[in-house]
């Protein structure tokens, strides 16, 4: 239960930053915080108290491996999602830098040619 609460607090902090901040960089940081919250949540789902790294070593019985190893799937998912978020964040920062070149500011209230 604590897992869920922790991830949600972090997630809410990120969401607050995305919704409430006016600086492009702070919005990007909010997105990063949200992504990390979800990644931490995924890792904590697969956690097992006093578990071991899910590596099958030489001479290890399968049943022993199943009983002690942690769930490796969330870790695979997390590394995939880290790669994806890397791409998204790189694109975001690149666009923010371009916007800064055009407008000379990171404040979204001054970058508002388009109306929603």
């Amino acid at each position: 239960m604590l897992t869920y609460l922790l991830a949600f607090i972090l997630f809410a902090v990120g969401l607050y930053s995305v919704i409430n901040k006016r600086n492009l960089i702070k919005i990007i940081m909010g997105i990063i915080i949200m992504e990390h919250a979800v990644n931490a949540f995924l890792i904590l789902i697969g956690y097992r108290l006093s578990g071991e790294a899910p590596i099958l070593e030489e001479g290890m019985a399968i049943s022993e491996f199943v009983n002690t190893a942690m769930d490796p799937l969330p870790q695979a998912l997390v590394i995939t999602s880290i790669v994806i978020s890397l791409g998204v964040v790189a694109l975001m920062v690149a666009i923010a830098v371009r916007l800064y070149q055009h407008y000379g500011t990171f404040d979204i209230t001054e970058i508002r040619k388009l109306r929603g």
Partner: peptide, 11 residues
Amino acid sequence: PEELEASFKYL
């Protein structure tokens, strides 16, 4: 500038 702004919003 407008394309970038739209792209950022979409992003």
